[in-house]
Design a protein around this nucleic acid. Structure first.
Lengths: 192, 192
DNA sequence: TTCAGCGCGTAGACACTGTCTACTCAATCC
DNA sequence: GGATTGAGTAGACAGTGTCTACGCGCTGAA
């Protein structure tokens, strides 16, 4: 489907997704999006009351994309540990290959404005994470806490690695050891 | 020392620190800082070539503050596990009580511009983290990887908790369980 | 003592941003 | 067929960061 075939609302979001994917968050202004969609800068207002609303719609597409990749990466696998590893790798890959989108998705003002609807965007993914953790550590404490700590660990690796902090601090050029260390810490060392 | 006694360069940074502490990152514009420092909007340019340079100087003060708090919290303690717990708590406390500053310190554009000088700001703290981790897990793999994963875990908890994501996902109103889960995961369960 | 040089702050312009309001204009409906 | 309405246009407005020309007081050398 061509961009021109969509109604403006969908087109604006699509333009935004493309823009943030190709050029990052910096040029993601209301006026630039309108320009690339071929409409005047006032047009988006008919569909998104404010710039933040449009950005939220774009970020939501990022969460959908992430969820889709997670589903794709885990389908066919049954071993919980394997599924969890695949999930973690998808998360880190996403942060690395779609930097701009990842940055947008976790922008403070977006998250805090409540427009993103975390219930729809990240909670489903977190639920499967919790299930897998519960399956791997059945006798332990509240799996939501364990899953939360694991999620935080992965997210932290994704962020700090993206900024180069971890690369600098650990002196390695590969995220893989950090990924393995995080998973091992939370799930116990992997079986060989 | 009164603000008026400092030269403008130091005054601008101090005004910025106060401003971001009291009102967050949103009003932290070049012109607003100049206004509160009682000078014209062009004055900062004599001391900071660009807005980002001024923000970096402000953020650097945040890193210094964090390091000072970490030193204060660990002094007098000798047990590595205790020191590590105190360190972690300082990190989470800082993120919670100085939200605006924490947000500024880890702004993408600041970190990526290279102006912050991670070598001076975060590496010293990371070095002590690595030492403590090495002391607690002497026989294991590269302590820098382990310490990196732990740091990432703490940072992730700080971020996701601040955004409310973890509160929502885990269903608790207290970070403490997440802190303990993170430490236990990376260091083994605490001795009783 | 005078005067050039300079450090440092002022004032205004510029291009850009997000928001708001008045307007056009085609499609729809009674 | 004329009124209504939805959707996009065009321009104004206040705010932003940056840049440039200007001024003013201090310093140091002749």
């Amino acid at each position: 489907m061509n961009d021109q075939d969509m109604d403006l609302k969908a087109r604006l979001v699509q333009v935004g997704v493309d823009l943030v994917t190709e050029e990052g968050t910096q040029p993601l202004t209301l006026r630039e999006i309108a320009r690339r969609a071929g409409v005047s800068h006032g047009a988006p207002r008919r569909h998104f009351p404010t710039h933040l609303d449009l950005l939220s719609a774009i970020a939501r597409r990022g969460f959908e994309d992430l969820a889709a990749r997670a589903a794709e990466a885990t389908e066919g696998r049954t071993d919980p540990r394997e599924r969890l590893t695949a999930l973690a790798r998808v998360y880190l890959d996403f942060a690395r290959t779609r930097r701009g989108m990842f940055e947008l998705m976790f922008r403070h003002d977006l998250l805090e404005s409540g427009r993103l609807g975390l219930r729809d965007t990240s909670l489903p993914l977190f639920a499967t994470l919790t299930e897998l953790v519960a399956a791997l550590r059945p006798d332990d404490q509240d799996p939501r806490i364990l899953a939360g700590a694991l999620w935080a660990g992965l997210h932290g690796v994704a962020q700090l690695w993206g900024w180069g902090s971890l690369r600098l601090a650990t002196g390695t050029d590969d995220v893989e050891p950090l990924l393995r260390a995080t998973l091992d810490a939370h799930l116990g060392p992997a079986a060989r």
